[in-house]
Structure formats: structure tokens, C-alpha cells
Write a protein that binds this DNA or RNA. Structure first.
Lengths: 341, 341
DNA sequence: TACATAATTGAAAGCGCTTTGGATGCCCCG
DNA sequence: CGGGGCATCCAAAGCGCTTTCAATTATGTA
């Protein structure tokens, strides 16, 4: 069943039927009723591809999903998607997800953008000097970046959390508790948030004349295995750190396993603060020693970005181009005074 | 840049350029080279919506993502998607994901199917007597179901794991260890896998003349909170169960917290077997007491379904319509002999 | 009553691609 | 030398929708 058939059925022109369906004012109310009724009876749905072709709009937002055989799937991705979806469903928007090898992201994003079947793009996993930024700017499709790109002119639309501030505050708290030996378990070095979080830690330490030693920093994929490994390394240092900053509760999961295996007590021998993206599966309050965290909901960020993206496509009022969300510092039991030597 | 412009640039017809790009034989090799070269230089990409409209194919598979404000995002979904993606990326397929309220899934799936922008559908979260099945059959779009629908004629294409067998075997193991008081922590009652798993347990118990008491079964969303709650209930029963079957490692996570909080020891006071979907975040071997599990990779299932779906769309040879994967029963430390009273 | 104005509806062009059904020119063979 | 066969290429029709421009009818006004 297509428009033509439907209009023949009704004895109307395609024009009128199309207008009736899309809420144009110049169609008689009685006629519109008749059309709507026929739609209900026949189950007619407009062909989206045709609509897209004709209007240039399709009600979809595009994103690239990094994937590869053996590439560990990322819980954060799913959670973020849930946030996007929560908002999208309200506007009858859908997603076009292009799976792509992580090394091929720029090209994949480009393909997606000019494929002509998305109205807007969502971009994540930002890096320092991210090469996608200039490309996006040269295209003329709306987009919002989740995160920022260290080293790039901040003249693109983004939503980010104050990573530097979060880790600055967290470090300050640990300093106030008397800690002097710090370690940072971070995400992959090239990622923007990792750079900023590190900067936050370094800044706070510098105020006390402390430095963050190279061997007290780990950069790795944010998986629990990597957390375990990194913590094991830290614990073997001659001057073992007592204060750990951790970029994710996922990393913390492994890190804590290492702490336990070493027979140390969290919150006493070792204090740890993790960043909490509010993953349903990893509630800091449910850890055997509840975790002190810097918190910001990934899901909320997703919903907000969807809102901006969809709003832009629908031309529904202006949105702020740049948003920087503060994180909350929530103190629980995994932080305590520095152990007396 | 579109086909027309490109062909004018080359001094060729759109026909020839199109053919050159799509590998038709009737075009001169030299011409094809010239076209390919121009594509490289101009960065031309065919408009997918137009392609879709003209051919009816778009290289996309569609799925519905259940979502709602407050609806907890499902780790299983993300993991499955990763599996789909792993395969899709190899064939330059993408996904069209339609977020939908869980109550609206049938309609959403229908909209997606007849929207005309997907070539095939993937369907999950199957229920008993699933209403989507008759609808899918009446449409003429390829689809593969993950799971099955208890009570429906099994004449639709699916990939499922042998849930009944898995839980039958797991129960048998516990019986052999001398357990007699069983409990089952299951997923939502209406879901197909929950029905079958329960049947598996019941069948194994019946062979020993045992029955599964109503108050020893919980049906709930597969979150750790629900696992905690359910286990707390079980532990308060006058005849507390010593053997727990658990439909997910996520549920197990909460269940084990309850066990610990009750001061009981896993593998001694309480034996537990969980089904393991091989979630990267929840490795049974990494639990403080490693978990005995029935295992089947969700990700592998995703990849396989993508393979079948894409293969069907590309008419690449016949695929089996029905696949039933056996699970592995992997014994670790969470199971032990029934405690002597 | 005559004419401007508003309310409805339609015909047809166009979105960017694929594909059918010819053209065109060239080579080869009897 | 003439026509069949081949290799290439092209014009134009369509895919299903939206939208511009125009036509038709109904309404109101002088």
C-alpha cells in the first residue's frame, strides 16, 4: 500500500492525502478525517526512504559503534544509547548505527554523514585533536559531540562533564585526608576525558607541591581486567600509593579485586575514588565497601544530547551550543584518612 | 555531489557511472577506472535513501530497542548488539534501531518493517505466544528471532539456546551433589526463556520425585537489585533452599550479596549455578567465589544471526531456519555438596 | 449582480538512484 | 561488401514521497 494506491482508493490526489497526513492547514477537516480513517483501515505507512529523499529529513540520528572481532563491547555505549533512546522515542526518531572498526571511525562517520539517511550525528569517544572535528565542520549536517577534544578550538557543539574539576575535587578530598602518594587509573591515553582528568589530578597535587609520578599512572581500556592489572602494578611499587583515582567503576571493580587479593583493606590501607557513570550494573553503593565517587549520569547525557539533536533538526528553538556539566562528589566508605606509617 | 554531477564531470551518462560503481560487466575497464578515480577525488557517496528507493535494498537490519524513562537499560542488549555489529561491519551493513516503549513493541516492529528502510529484522525478548510472530509471518520481510516463542508453532526462523537442557543439566548436577531444596531465580515470567528454564528444572526434579515449590521461584527483571531481593526472600523461608538456579549472572551478583550479608558461604551453605551470557563485565571466574555456570555467548549468537540475516538479504546460499545451541556446563566453586543438617 | 478573496484540491516536477530497452560503432565472416 | 554479433554507452522510466504552482469552487463585499 503506497500513497498512490491510497489516494486512488479515496478518490483524492496524492497531494491532498499527503497534506492531510502531514497536518497541513489547507485541507478540509472532513477530508482529513476520511484520510485518517482510511490509513487506520489499510495500515498504510509512508515509505521512509521516499520521504527522506523528498524532504531531506528522515527522523533519524546517526552514530558510529566501534566494533571489531575481539573488541570488547563497552557498557558505557549501551547506557548512553539508552539515554538517547529515551528521548528519541518521544519524537518518533530512530537511530542509524554504523558499526565500524575503531581505526576506521573517521571514514565511517563520513560515510554515515553523506549517506543521506541521517538528519544529525552523534559523536563520542573524543580524542585529543580529534580528526573528526574538522571533517564534521566541513559537512553541513547537525551534530553534537559527547565530550570535547583537547587541543581543538572549542567552537563545536558539545556536551561534556567537567572532568578536570571532578578529578581536581576528588584529589583535594584525598589530600585533605592526608594522602600524599597518589595513583591514577585512567582510560586510554588518547581520549580527551583521560587527558583532562589527569590534568585535574596534577593541578590539585601541584597546589601542595606534589607531582604525579609516571609509574603511578596507568592508561588502559576501561575493563575490570585492566583495573586488576593496573592495581597489581601499583601495589608492587616500592612506595605504594595510598590514594587511587579511578576513571570508571568498571576499572574500580578489578582494582578492588586486586586490593582484596593483596590482603589490604579498602578505605583504610587504600583509599579509592572512582568516576561513576551511573551504570545500572555497577552501583557504587553496592560494592562490599561502598565507593566514594564523582558522579554524572551517562544516560542523562544521552537524553540531553538527543534532545538537542532532535530539537535542531526540528528547528525547535535554539539550544546552547556548549554545555559543561558539573559532577557530584559523593563520599562513601572507600575513602579514609591516610594510613600512618 | 550526486550521480548527475559526477557523470557530467566525467562526460558520461548516469547509467554508465552507476554501472561502473556497481560492478556491472558491460562497462569498459578503462572507463571504470576513470569513474573510480573520480569517486576517490570527489569523495562521492551514493545517497542511501535514493538507492533504497530504487532497489528496495539498503544494507540495513532493523531492530527494536525497548526503552522508556526509568526503564533500566539492559546489558544483554548491548552485548548482543556488539555481536551483530561484529558481523555487520564486514558486509557494510548498518542498523536501524527503533526505540520503543516495551508495551508498544508489536506496533513499533510493524512500523519498522513497513517503513521501507530496513532489509531484514532482528527480533528478541520473545514471549510465550508472542504476538509479533503472526505479524512477521504476514509481512514479507526476512527476519530471525533470537529465542523462541513457547506455545507458537515453531515454523519461523530462529536461533535459540537449549534453555531447558541447560537448566535440566544444572539441576541434575545439584541433585547429584545431594541437594533437595531448590530455588529458581528466573527472568520475567512471560519471557520464553524463563518458561523453558523453569521446565528444565521441573523436569530434572521430577525424575527424583521432587517438586519446585511456588515460593521457591522468583520472576523478575534481571538486575542485581532483583537478585538481592529474591535471594533475601529465599533465605527467609522456613525450609531455606540450598541449591539455587539463576537465570543470569546479573541476578547472581545481587543474590551473592544477599548470601554474604546473611553470613552464609557460597559453595558450602548455598550452591548456586547461574546462566552465563558471557558479559565482559561479569565474568563468573572473577567472582570472589567463582561461579558454576551454564554458558552460551550472547555475542556469538548476535554475530550468527547477523550472518543469517545478511546472507538472506544478499541471497548468499541457504541457511538453516532453526538453530538450537547447546550450552556448556562449567563447574566452578559456587557448587558443592549439600550441607548436612 | 459582479468581482475580489478565501478555501480546497490537483497536476506535475523533482529528490538521487537503478534498470530496461534501445542506440552506436566496431570487428568478423561468408 | 553486407549483415550478424559484441562491446559500450545512453535516454528515459520509475521507486514513493513532498511541494510548487495553478485551477476550481465557495464566500463575502460593494
Amino acid at each position: 500500500m503506497n500513497l498512490k494506491q491510497l489516494s486512488e482508493l479515496l478518490g483524492l490526489s496524492q497531494t491532498t492525502v499527503s497534506r492531510a497526513l502531514n497536518g497541513y492547514p489547507e485541507v478540509n477537516e472532513a477530508t482529513r478525517e476520511r484520510v485518517l480513517q482510511a490509513v487506520k483501515e489499510t495500515g498504510y505507512r509512508p515509505n521512509k526512504a521516499a520521504q527522506r529523499l523528498a524532504t531531506g529529513k528522515a527522523g533519524s540520528i546517526g552514530l558510529v559503534m566501534p566494533t571489531a572481532p575481539g573488541h570488547q563491547s563497552d557498557v558505557h555505549f549501551g547506557e548512553f544509547l539508552a539515554g538517547l533512546g529515551e528521548e528519541a522515542v518521544r519524537h518518533d526518531f530512530h537511530f542509524v548505527i554504523m558499526p565500524a572498526d575503531p581505526d576506521d571511525e573517521v571514514a565511517a562517520l563520513r560515510r554515515l554523514a553523506i549517506s543521506g539517511n541521517v538528519d544529525a550525528l552523534f559523536v563520542a569517544y573524543m580524542r585529543g585533536h580529534d580528526p573528526r572535528l574538522p571533517m564534521l565542520k566541513s559537512l553541513s549536517i547537525p551534530y553534537v559531540v559527547h565530550g570535547r577534544s583537547f587541543g581543538s578550538e572549542p567552537d563545536y557543539p558539545y556536551l561534556d562533564i567537567d572532568n578536570e574539576g571532578a578529578f581536581y575535587d576528588a584529589t583535594r578530598l584525598l589530600l585533605q585526608l592526608g594522602h600524599t602518594r597518589f595513583a591514577l587509573m585512567n582510560g586510554p591515553m588518547h581520549l580527551d576525558f583521560a587527558i583532562r582528568r589527569r590534568n585535574g589530578v596534577v593541578a590539585a597535587l601541584a597546589e601542595r607541591g606534589l607531582a604525579l609520578e609516571e609509574d603511578c599512572v596507568s592508561h588502559a581500556l576501561m575493563t575490570d581486567e585492566q583495573g586488576l592489572l593496573a592495581m597489581e602494578q601499583f601495589l608492587q611499587l616500592p612506595q605504594r600509593p595510598t590514594a587511587i583515582l579511578c576513571s570508571s567503576t568498571v576499572l574500580a571493580l578489578g582494582a578492588i579485586r586486586a586490593v582484596n587479593q593483596a590482603g589490604l583493606r579498602l578505605g583504610e590501607d587504600i583509599s579509592l575514588i572512582a568516576h561513576d557513570d551511573v551504570l545500572p550494573l555497577l552501583k557504587p553503593e553496592n560494592f562490599s565497601v561502598p565507593l566514594t565517587t564523582t558522579r554524572s549520569s551517562l544516560r542523562a547525557a544521552g537524553a540531553r544530547i538527543a534532545q538537542r539533536l532532535i530539537g535542531t533538526v526540528k528547528q525547535a528553538g535554539p539550544f546552547p551550543d556548549q554545555e559543561l556539566w558539573k559532577t557530584e562528589l559523593i563520599v562513601r566508605a572507600s575513602t579514609g584518612p591516610a594510613p600512618q606509617v
